[in-house]
């Protein structure tokens, strides 16, 4: 492989890694605080859409912020329903995913007047280093490392994890269970929104009606696969990114290996992992269970 081709391949891997990594790290933060959010797919999609709108009006930075902001809002909605109203954790996520499946194609037609996809103009795209390297993958890696550090090396992380493991214990020593959960979910969903923004106004440069293409669910798989650890998620996301790029290359090279079957791999691996075949993964013990007092 010529040097430039290798570089292009590496950039491809990094780009493919980024949305999955951001989303998975966000969900790890939320689930470590005990809240499960399966609406990530929808948040990525709506984040991508909002980012495109904002970027076309106010530039790429505004676009990224819009992705984060919309993600945070959807996270807040989830937090209100789960942490404060003690509702079920899974249903709102299904709702958000369904909403996104309607909202994004609807807005493509209504706002951009195009059915199916809209190309983001150059001025609205995140500027690239050396013409084709985005800064975002490096920011995502930084975020993953920072999330790991905060979760496992600081008192704040200790508090957050205690809420997901045993909210009674956390409550007893004065940790505000609901508020901790709300903050974690909002931050987590904001990262998924950022992932969406990256996809539309950076990596792909196009907003399509199925832009997430299952990445929200791959991220969910990665959360489990990584044993709720952002550093493992980084490794896993790199692996997925490599597969993703490789399958693009394989398609180009006509090797005859069906990429549709390769696509099942992350899910199969995750199922094997949760079944305890590859050693044990240990979810936060109170994840997904509403916390009620007395």
């Amino acid at each position: 492989m010529p040097e430039s081709a290798a570089l292009i391949f590496a950039v491809g891997v990094l780009n493919a890694m980024t949305p999955i990594l951001l989303t998975a790290v966000g969900e790890i933060i939320a689930e470590r605080a005990g809240v499960v959010n399966i609406g990530l797919e929808g948040i990525i999609m709506i984040g991508a859409m909002a980012a495109t709108m904002a970027a076309e009006g106010f530039g790429p930075l505004a676009g990224l912020l819009a992705g984060i902001g919309v993600g945070a809002l959807l996270g807040l909605l989830h937090a209100v329903l789960t942490a404060y109203l003690k509702g079920d954790h899974v249903i709102p996520g299904i709702g958000v995913n369904t909403l996104a499946l309607g909202l994004v194609p609807f807005m493509l037609i209504v706002y951009w007047g195009s059915a199916g996809q809209h190309t983001v103009p150059r001025y609205a795209q995140v500027p690239k280093i050396a013409g084709y390297i985005s800064p975002m993958p490096f920011i995502a890696i930084l975020i993953a490392v920072a999330a790991w550090y905060i979760l496992f090396k600081t008192p704040t992380g200790l508090k957050l994890r205690s809420v997901g493991e045993n909210p009674v214990a956390a409550d007893t020593v004065g940790i505000l269970v609901e508020r901790t959960q709300a903050v974690a979910v909002v931050v987590g969903a904001a990262l998924a929104g950022l992932a969406g923004a990256f996809m539309s106004i950076d990596w792909l440069g196009v907003l399509t009606k199925e832009i997430a293409a299952g990445r929200g669910f791959i991220a969910l798989a990665l959360v489990v696969f990584s044993n709720w650890n952002p550093l493992w998620a980084l490794g896993g996301a790199l692996l997925f990114g490599t597969f993703d790029s490789l399958s693009q290359w394989l398609k180009v090279l006509h090797t005859g290996i069906p990429d549709t079957l390769i696509n099942t791999l992350p899910y199969v691996v995750t199922l094997i992992a949760v079944a305890g075949v590859l050693g044990r993964v240990q979810p936060p013990r109170h994840a997904g269970i509403p916390y009620r007092r007395e």
Binding site: G42, L77, L81, I91, P92, I94, G95, V96, N97, T98, L99, A100, L101, G102, L103, F106
Partner: peptide, 9 residues
């Protein structure tokens, strides 16, 4: 789908 999503939420 938008209507449906809001109903679920």
């Amino acid at each position: 789908r938008i209507v449906e999503g809001v109903i679920i939420i």
